[in-house]
Measured scan of single mutants.
Amino acid sequence: MTEYKLVVVGAGGVGKSALTIQLIQNHFVDEYDPTIEDSYRKQVVIDGETCLLDILDTAGQEEYSAMRDQYMRTGEGFLCVFAINNTKSFEDIHHYREQIKRVKDSEDVPMVLVGNKCDLPSRTVDTKQAQDLARSYGIPFIETSAKTRQGVDDAFYTLVREIRKHKEKMSKDGKKKKKKSKTKCVIM
C-alpha cells in the first residue's frame, strides 16, 4: 500500500485542523484551538488504489514558523489553505509557496490551493482571484467548507493525484537520464 505524506499549511484560523478532522473523523470542530502540530493517518481508496494518507496539520501562528522547514522537508505534497473571508490569509499563500519551493529546492512541488469556509456569506476573496492565482502557479484550486464537508475529500484526493503525477514524471525523467548515460565512448 502506497503511503502519501501530505502537509496542510496556511495562516492561523483558516480551518486547516477543521478540514483535516472532517476528512479523518467526519465531524466539524467549530471551536478554535490553535494547533502546534498534529499528525493523522487514514486509509482510503483513490482511483481504485488503496493508500495510506499521513497528514500533518501544522501551526499557522507566526511564533511556530521555525518548525516549518522541518515538516516541509518531509512532506510530499501540500494543501495551501486560505479562508475566503480573510484576504490576508490569501496573500500569505505566496509566502508559504515560496518557502516550500526553497526548502524542497524545487520549482515543481505537488500543491493544491484550497479556499476554505465557502459556506460563509462574508467572502472577501473572489473565486476568480483564487483561480487566477492557482493557474499562475500551475496547481489545482478547490473551494471547501469544513463545516458542510463540501470539497473536503476532493481537496485531499486531488493532492494525492498531483503527487502521483509528480512521481510518474520524475521516474520518466530518471529513465531518460539513465538511457543517456548508457551511451559509451570508444577510443581507438
Results as ranks from 00 to 15, higher is better:
T2D: 14
E3M: 10
E3T: 14
Y4D: 13
K5V: 04
L6K: 01
L6Q: 03
V7D: 00
V7G: 06
V7Y: 07
V8P: 01
V9D: 06
V9G: 06
G10V: 01
G10N: 00
G12M: 11
G12W: 09
G12T: 10
G13W: 10
V14E: 10
V14W: 03
S17I: 03
S17L: 00
S17C: 04
L19C: 13
L19G: 13
L19R: 01
L19I: 12
T20N: 07
T20L: 07
I21T: 08
Q22I: 04
Q22T: 11
Q22P: 01
Q22A: 08
L23T: 14
L23E: 15
Q25W: 08
Q25D: 15
N26A: 14
N26T: 09
H27N: 15
H27Y: 15
H27K: 14
H27Q: 15
H27I: 15
H27T: 15
V29F: 14
V29C: 08
D30T: 09
D30A: 09
E31M: 06
Y32C: 05
D33T: 03
D33P: 00
D33L: 02
P34N: 00
P34F: 03
I36G: 02
I36W: 01
E37R: 15
D38L: 00
D38S: 04
S39G: 14
Y40L: 01
R41W: 05
R41T: 08
K42W: 07
K42M: 09
K42P: 07
Q43Y: 07
V44P: 09
V44Y: 08
V45I: 11
V45E: 12
I46A: 13
I46D: 12
D47Q: 09
E49D: 11
E49A: 11
T50Y: 09
T50V: 10
T50R: 13
T50N: 12
L52I: 14
L53R: 03
L53N: 11
D54K: 15
D54I: 07
D54Q: 14
I55N: 08
I55M: 14
D57E: 04
T58K: 02
T58Q: 02
Q61F: 06
E62R: 06
E63F: 03
